[in-house]
């Protein structure tokens, strides 16, 4: 796919940062505000789609390695399943970290309040794991579809051309 014009690329340079930060916010604050791992991961993967569409497949795929995304996806799924299995003393997916103190175990006061960031036990941990998995999975789908297009376009011997060069 050809890279778009310089106007689109400048706007993309600015808004990609906001998309990434908003997605990370939605993932990390998943147990306080609306959202969670899946929603925030989809927002961050939209950033990958924006960069690929604005800059073309050739420039982005030259410095993106799909192996890193594959490792991130496997890590996210393994952390998720491991955190589920660690509570198997009571039940599968038991929240064994909630209210125990430490990094994930602060106790929130009852009633309406604004929430504490390092609370909620394995819920917060699973949010981050699922967010990692969704980011890398959806980005891998987009990256491999772009590689597939380049496969078909290379058969005709056409190369990428921008609008402004």
């Amino acid at each position: 796919m050809n890279p778009l014009s310089v106007v689109v690329r400048t706007i993309c340079d600015i808004f990609a940062w906001f998309l990434g930060i908003f997605g990370a916010y939605v993932i990390i604050h998943g147990h306080i505000s609306p959202g969670g791992g899946f929603q925030g991961g989809a927002v961050v993967a939209t950033m990958a789609a924006l960069l690929l569409v604005a800059y073309g497949g050739k420039k982005v795929l030259s410095f993106v390695r799909p192996g890193i995304y594959t490792g991130m996806e496997a890590t996210g799924l393994l952390v998720f399943i491991t955190a589920g299995f660690l509570g198997i003393g009571t039940t599968f997916f038991y929240n064994f970290l909630a209210g125990q103190g430490g990094l994930f175990g602060s106790v929130v006061p009852l009633g309406p309040n604004s929430g504490i960031l390092n609370s909620a036990g394995t819920i917060s941990l699973m949010n981050m794991a699922v967010g990692l998995e969704v980011v890398s999975g959806l980005s891998l789908i987009l990256i491999y579809m772009f590689k597939g297009i380049r496969l078909f376009e290379g058969r005709e011997g056409r190369s990428e051309r921008g609008h402004d060069r």
Partner: peptide
């Protein structure tokens, strides 16, 4: 029980994990 403010997330990731 789960010390979480967002009940939707507590259902999705804990009660119905």
């Amino acid at each position: 029980e789960r010390s979480v403010n967002n009940v939707v997330t507590s259902i999705v990731f804990d009660y119905r994990g």
